[in-house]
């Protein structure tokens, strides 16, 4: 079972791949059809990465337990001063401490 490949699964994966590629090229196709980028639109586009990534962070923080909240706050404090991997390490360590030593 674990080594089989089902045709339905392949079709589903390829459909997801096509949907993903459309999102990846869609913005380029739309923007090159326009002659100029209005300043407000440019300002909006510049805000996109922070806006989207925030939506992946906020539910994890607010819906997560204390272990998640503490780990993310520790990571935030670390991330302001140190590079990404240190931030990951600090948050991970905080989560391990919360779960295995403090019992959250």
């Amino acid at each position: 079972m674990a080594d089989q490949i089902s045709m339905d699964m392949i079709l589903l994966i390829l459909a997801a791949a096509v949907a993903t590629f459309l999102t990846r090229i869609g913005g380029y196709v739309l923007i090159t059809r326009m002659k100029t980028i209005p300043p407000r639109m440019e300002q909006a586009l510049n805000a996109v990465p922070a806006a989207v990534l925030t939506t992946l962070v906020a539910p994890a923080f607010f819906n997560g337990g204390w272990d998640f909240k503490i780990a993310m706050l520790v990571a935030l404090a670390a991330g302001i001063r140190y590079p990404g991997l240190m931030m990951l390490g600090a948050g991970w360590a905080a989560a391990m401490v919360c779960r295995h030593l403090l019992g959250f």
């Binding site: 999102t23 990846r24 090229i25 913005g27 196709v29 739309l30 586009l45 996109v48 990465p49």
Partner: peptide
């Protein structure tokens, strides 16, 4: 993945 629409627009 909808965010990628905005990424590719910003990358253009």
């Amino acid at each position: 993945n909808f965010r990628h629409i905005l990424y590719s627009a910003a990358l253009a």
